[in-house]
Design a binder for these strands. Structure first.
Lengths: 343, 343
DNA sequence: TCCGATTGTGCAAACGTTTTAACAAACGAA
DNA sequence: TTCGTTTGTTAAAACGTTTGCACAATCGGA
């Protein structure tokens, strides 16, 4: 039905091989033949059948990824959307498309990945998250299939990944609060089994230590990446006999929970409690007051992941396994202290 | 390298055709053979090569879509993420994956779609938006290639689409404000060339008319789907000699702009101005005050689109071209009037 | 003039499936 | 017993490419 390489060949009076070689810019094809064949391809509206091409060349020019499950709140809408934009944009630029699939459980996800890999549907895989002992990572590593992780995998430093320096990011956030004159600073963390929670807590602790500030164990609260966690943390902190004057919060969404609680109780931000958090989603600047947040370069995380994975597919060994995307603290009203406001 | 159908056949002592038929549950294959072949496939870790399968069967079990360009703010992060979740989930359930590609201009997007269609990479296409005279729609229609539109295309009622009843949604929102005792109600619209803007304005006008309320042309303001538009609309309305007491706003993000402006000027919501908007993104309930918003079922829009497209691919002719996803007004504090609050 | 290298092209096999047509065997009814 | 039907299987062609090998023609230097 559709125009094939043979049709073009016949019309051009050459063999199919020649047409194929024109397509792939083979050096031995003459200027003249190239011109003629290309003209005829144009004229006949030829587009090569990707399935046939993939079958023989064993390349699909497709990167796979699994859609994060709703349960995995680490990846909220904003993160996911920005991230995938980065991934897709860079992939496109290199002639790759993104294949997305999903599973309703860890087991189904593994089955989906297996299907993509063994069924030769993709050339590489981008993983948006990893749990501890991730069977998908184990599988991909065992198959020696190209893949990259956004985030990093504490259990295995050998795998390719793109991540932030979360220790430093939290250090910066904490130091900023200290510079604003705060000494009593609390930390609202995420699930303790996630590297990101561990790293950010670490950065907070280091900053406190480096500036000789007292650390109280009760000023560190764990939670989920949900606003409810923020709400709970807030009420815990505000009921302490000695309240902190500022909080470093693991995620913007959690901070919204803190903020809502504070507003309900009649406390004011930053006057009664200053806040800094992470991710800098677009709504941080819309809230009242606007939230200070560490921009972790979500788009760039995706962009780099695409780029590095494609390089690896094409046989480029990277110097180091882990690539760091720079972060940037965006200071807004939620962490500006009174004196600097009054000045 | 990988295990092929031939390897399985040889090991099972049958022909490749038989193995293929076992794979596709051909009725003529005996119980015994099926059992044996399946066991061997399991044992050898066989997975069929999708490229080869697609090449001959002309089916890819893949749906294509183009990533909305950042410029097209109609599709914000929240919408996009929720929508794609619906699309992918339902696709997966039917054994389809999603292929995502992108282009930096309308022309590139058309080229990308052409590549997917002519290169036989996908079985159908989901379009997340359409401009007027969309060349992509024209192309797909001309090729008679299965596709579905999320939203609808006023120029052509023949194409398959999933949409809300935006007229009724706006009617409901307006009527709610009227029920709260408002008579002076303004409308903040989106770009006038989008169907969604036209429809929602229409619903607003009808509700006002049906309740015998005065309509003032200056109470209708056009803008973009950006918070800046909300900010501008707000300052316009609040500087009128006769201010409205409530606004219907085309989109939540725009409403955040209105809200920020009001807060800056010291106005209070809903006391000085009540607000209702559309889309019900997750942050509407986190803002202060929480925003009333019409939930348009973003996930379900995607879910239905997937489902209907797959049906069409499989040869099921739908009764009607346009499928309506129900909406639901979620009333929150931003539109509850004083009397009902005090009661 | 001859010959080795270079340039341009074609033949045919291969990639891993699906599917049509054919056929053998078993079955059941006359 | 015979013959039409059903059941189970296979051989082989086809899908649209890529690519190793072969070969002819041209070229450039001795």
């Amino acid at each position: 039905m559709a125009v094939t390489i043979k049709d073009v060949a016949k019309r051009a009076g050459v063999s199919p091989s020649t047409v194929s070689r024109v397509l792939s810019n083979h050096p031995r094809i003459s200027r003249e033949t190239t011109r003629k064949v290309k003209a005829i391809m144009e004229e006949m509206g030829y587009h090569s059948n990707m399935m046939a091409r993939s079958l023989v060349s064993n390349k699909t020019y497709t990167l796979g990824m699994i859609l994060p499950r709703p349960a995995e709140e680490l990846f909220q809408n904003h993160f996911f959307a920005e991230n995938i934009r980065g991934i897709t944009t860079q992939a496109s630029r290199n002639g790759y498309d993104i294949l997305m699939t999903t599973g309703h459980s860890e087991q189904e996800e593994l089955a989906a990945v297996t299907r993509l890999v063994k069924g030769k549907r993709v050339d590489g895989i981008i993983l948006l998250q990893s749990r501890r002992n991730d069977p998908i990572i184990a599988f991909l590593k065992h198959e020696e299939f190209p893949f990259i992780l956004i985030g990093h995998y504490a259990q295995d430093e050998e795998i390719l990944c793109v991540d932030n320096d979360n220790v430093q990011a939290a250090y910066d956030a904490t130091q900023h609060l200290i510079a604003q004159g705060h000494e009593r600073i609390g930390f609202v963390s995420g699930p303790p089994n996630l590297t990101v929670s561990v790293d950010r807590l670490d950065g907070y602790l280091r900053a406190m230590h480096d500036h000789g500030l007292p650390m109280q164990p009760e000023w560190i609260v764990e939670g989920e990446f949900l606003q409810e966690s923020g709400y709970r943390a807030m009420s815990f902190f505000m009921n302490l006999p000695e309240r902190p004057t500022a909080l470093v919060v693991i995620d913007d969404l959690v901070t919204f929970g803190v903020l809502r609680g504070l507003t309900e109780l009649g406390f004011r931000v930053p006057d009664d409690l200053s806040l800094v958090s992470f991710n800098n989603i677009s709504l941080t600047e819309l809230s009242t007051p606007p939230l200070s947040s560490v921009d972790i370069g979500i788009y760039q995380l995706g962009y780099m992941a695409s780029q590095l994975l494609i390089r690896q597919i094409q046989g480029d060994k990277p110097q180091q396994n882990r690539t760091i995307v720079p972060h940037r603290l965006i200071v807004r009203e939620s962490s500006l202290n009174l004196s600097s406001k009054r000045s």
